[in-house]
């Protein structure tokens, strides 16, 4: 890549690094708050006792059937933050995914950009790379904030390494949502439609995953194969460690979506 090529990458970082700070600290504080509300081991035991009184369906839905795991500090954070963290990250990654082509095409700014000596492929790749890097920044800031929350509650025995794995595990799913939005932007162009479709995919995927976990023997159990949250598995990755197969799958699908977005954007009229 020459200097002119990296100009789009650098400009994207320059314009959006503040947003990364806002989202990273915001999401991180959400996670840190969950650590801060846990005062001591007794409170965890109370949660475990409560779990024992719940019907099996709820235990399955909220704790994946492992009530003892939910009574640990890591399990509590997993169910109260990491289980839905990807949905919160989706709000960020869909937003920045729209910034790759859809927003500028919708506002007529793409005409100015594409009149410059930059290919559509480079435009998408440089912007996506910049937003992927910023998403990494949001993940790191989130981890730092949670670490701060954990440090403020020394009475709790929390394995910070497992929390770090759980936080990093948000990244592949977030990249998939980012590239899904880029793909839709490259294919459709209309900002509202791209936003709607991407949001519906994420929400439906999340709901299917929740229902499939609660009732694995039903249709939802079958549909879960198509839910990205099945491969994210934010709750049990902290207990069981990173599933490399899932990570690779999410990254491969992300790469395929990005490639598809580039192809689609190259083939169609812009701004009509």
């Amino acid at each position: 890549m020459n200097g002119a090529t990296l100009a789009v990458f650098a400009e994207t970082l320059r314009r959006h690094w503040r947003g990364m700070l806002f989202w990273g600290i915001g999401i991180g504080l959400l996670g840190a708050t969950q650590a801060l509300v846990l005062q001591d081991v007794d409170s965890l035991q109370q949660i475990a006792d409560l779990m024992e009184t719940l019907p099996p369906f709820f235990v399955q839905a909220f704790a994946g059937g492992d009530a003892q795991y939910m009574a640990t500090a890591e399990g509590y954070l997993a169910s109260q933050f990491f289980s839905f963290a990807l949905v919160v990250f989706a709000a960020y990654t869909i937003g920045v995914g729209l910034q790759v082509t859809a927003n500028e095409e919708d506002r007529g700014q793409m005409d100015v950009l594409l009149s410059l000596p930059v290919t559509r492929t480079r435009l998408i790749l440089e912007k996506t790379a910049a937003f992927a890097l910023l998403t990494c920044g949001v993940v790191v800031l989130t981890l730092l904030c949670i670490a701060g929350g954990i440090a403020a509650t020394p009475a709790l025995p929390i394995d910070m390494g497992r929390i770090a794995v759980g936080t990093l595990n948000i990244l592949p799913g977030s990249l998939l949502i980012l590239t899904l939005t880029v793909f839709l932007g490259g294919l459709i162009g209309n900002r509202s439609r791209v936003l709607t479709i991407a949001a519906v995919v994420v929400i439906v995927s999340y709901v299917i995953d929740i229902l499939a976990v609660a009732a694995p023997g039903t249709l939802f159990g079958t549909l879960r194969t198509f839910s990205l949250f099945r491969y994210y598995d934010g709750v049990f990755v902290i207990r069981d460690g990173l599933n490399l197969g899932n990570v690779v799958l999410l990254l491969v699908v992300s790469a395929a979506l990005l490639g598809g977005g580039v192809l689609a954007f190259n083939r169609r009229d812009v701004g009509v």
């Binding site: 020459n2 200097g3 400009e11 100015v112």
Partner: peptide, 28 residues
């Protein structure tokens, strides 16, 4: 080529100088 569209839509929150530097850097 230098191009001026009929309906010029630029990035509202950027200053003119920032946009000039961006466009210039893409041009090399």
């Amino acid at each position: 080529i230098g191009y001026l569209p009929a309906e010029l839509n630029l990035w509202e929150r950027q200053t003119a100088l920032q946009i000039i530097r961006y466009v210039g850097s893409v041009r090399g």
